[in-house]
């Protein structure tokens, strides 16, 4: 199976892939956060569609669409950053803390941010 990623105008449609709408839990969470933030009035749906569109139309998007929610997440981060809700640096630092916490959590136990062994590393409190 080698799917061409180069030219979406000629690439085959990724048919027959009637997999669940979310391939991984984080995709569902990113989706749901967006819906919740829209409900909260943080942005209009047109605003969101514009942000998402800017990401998915960048060259290099996979023709089988497997990276769709990666673009979704990038769009969400950009919107939140532009609104002054969550800056890139804060998200980077907190994401690194979550990765350390996961690594320090024994298998089978819930991953909690408190499990981060070096909680001060590059992490200030969220701004704003």
């Amino acid at each position: 199976m080698n799917r061409r990623e180069a030219n979406s105008k000629t690439a085959a449609l990724p048919l027959g892939v009637d997999e669940p709408v979310f391939a991984e839990p984080w995709q569902a969470e990113a989706f749901a956060m967006t819906v919740a933030l829209h409900d909260k009035g943080l942005f209009s749906w047109s605003e969101w569609a514009e942000a998402l569109s800017a990401e998915v139309k960048k060259p290099g998007a996979a023709s089988d669409g497997h990276d769709y929610y990666e673009h979704w997440l990038t769009a969400l981060e950009k919107v939140l950053s532009a609104k002054g809700v969550a800056g890139r640096g804060d998200v980077d630092a907190l994401a690194a803390a979550w990765e350390r916490a996961a690594h320090a959590t024994p298998h089978g136990k819930p991953i909690l941010l408190e499990n981060d062994p070096s909680p001060t590393e590059g992490r200030g409190g969220p701004t704003g």
């Binding site: 956060m33 969550a86 980077d92 907190l94 320090a104 991953i111 969220p126």
Partner: peptide
């Protein structure tokens, strides 16, 4: 060890920030 891939970790980071700011409620998600 548990591993969080970078996308999952970023989603957790956003959830943490948004929850702290009262913009989302994890149960509602």
């Amino acid at each position: 060890d548990n591993e969080l891939d970078p996308f999952a970790a970023r989603v957790r980071a956003l959830e943490t920030i948004l929850t702290q700011k009262g913009l989302i409620d994890p149960a509602a998600i």
